[in-house]
Amino acid sequence: MFPDPDIQHLDDVSKHGGRVRSFRHERGHWASYVYAVFHPREEFREMLEELQSAARKHGVTLTKMEEFHISLSQTVILRHHWINPFVQSLKDRLCFVSRFLCVADRLKVYVNEEKTRTFLGMEVMTGHQQLLEVVSEVDKSLQEFNLETFYQNPSFHVSLAWCVGEVTEPLQGACLLELQKVVDEFEDSDVLTRFYADEIRCKCGNQVWSVPLR
């Protein structure tokens, strides 16, 4: 079970808000990743709108994420006939993992490897060790298929919004301090930024598999 060597990272411009595709699409090959689900309350989206407004004052236009999650793997390529065995491997390894509390209340700026998008995220502090343990199991499943494992010393986070290109400098300093103040002073922010990781998902192309935690 070896990935094809001709699968390459590409920077072809897509037509989705100026975003850039990371992988060439090939028949029978599916871009896939593993993540923990975060279901935000309606008030969380109101807080995010305030963050967008504050960022605009510093010349940064942020686009809200369509969904919110914590990545537990890099994006890898699975052949079609690998998908079911890979998902089953995840289920076998995670079936004894209990759900756990996560608190993500510290804002941080992230850039993808291709430096084509910049993200505003909330870093997970409480729950970090449990996420490392989940990643350890996910990595074992990836290694079964000779796929790349997750980053060393990861910063687990929930991406909130993004913009095209590398724009870390405008988001840092005074801007980031003001954004953090929005979170800290938002009513019930201590409730909105905490949640239980009770489900791990694997997305392959447009298909999603769920692995509930105990």
Rank of each mutant, 00 (worst) to 15 (best):
E113I: 06
F44A: 06
L213N: 11
C163F: 00
V208P: 02
V167C: 04
V76P: 02
Y110M: 14
K15C: 10
D188S: 14
V183R: 10
G17P: 00
D92V: 07
N84I: 08
F150P: 01
K203F: 03
Q172P: 00
L132T: 08
M125I: 14
V111A: 12
C102S: 10
F150G: 02
P154C: 12
I77S: 12
R27G: 04
Y151G: 00
T126W: 00
L72C: 08
C102K: 02
D4M: 03
E46I: 08
F156S: 12
I70K: 01
Q180R: 07
E123V: 09
N153E: 15
A161H: 02
L51M: 11
I70S: 01
L107C: 07
G205H: 10
E114M: 13
H29C: 14
V103H: 07
G59R: 00
E46H: 09
L94M: 09
V183T: 12
R201A: 05
T168M: 11
E178F: 00
S73H: 06
T118E: 07
E166D: 13
Y151I: 14
E46N: 05
V87A: 02
C202N: 02
P40L: 13
G59K: 00
A197S: 14
R194I: 02
L147A: 11
V167D: 03
D92R: 05
V87C: 01
Q74I: 01
K140C: 01
G121T: 09
S155M: 04
E123H: 04
M122N: 09
L177Q: 15
N112T: 09
V167I: 10
S141I: 01
W209Y: 14
V183M: 13
L171K: 04
E26L: 10
L147G: 07
Q130W: 02
T126L: 08
Q152V: 08
E185R: 15
S32A: 15
L176N: 07
L192G: 03
N206M: 05
R99E: 14
L160F: 06
E26W: 03
T61I: 06
K91G: 02
L132D: 15
H25M: 09
R93A: 02
W162M: 08
F86L: 11
F195A: 04
R79K: 15
F156N: 09
E144D: 15
P85W: 06
N112V: 08
V124C: 08
K181E: 15
A197G: 03
M122T: 10
P40C: 14
H128T: 07
D12G: 00
C202M: 04
P154H: 10
V97A: 05
S141T: 05
G205P: 06
V135W: 10
R214W: 07
P170I: 11
L176Q: 03
D198W: 06
F100E: 08
L94Q: 09
N153L: 14
M65G: 03
S98H: 14
H25S: 10
P170T: 08
D12M: 06
A31G: 12
Y151Q: 13
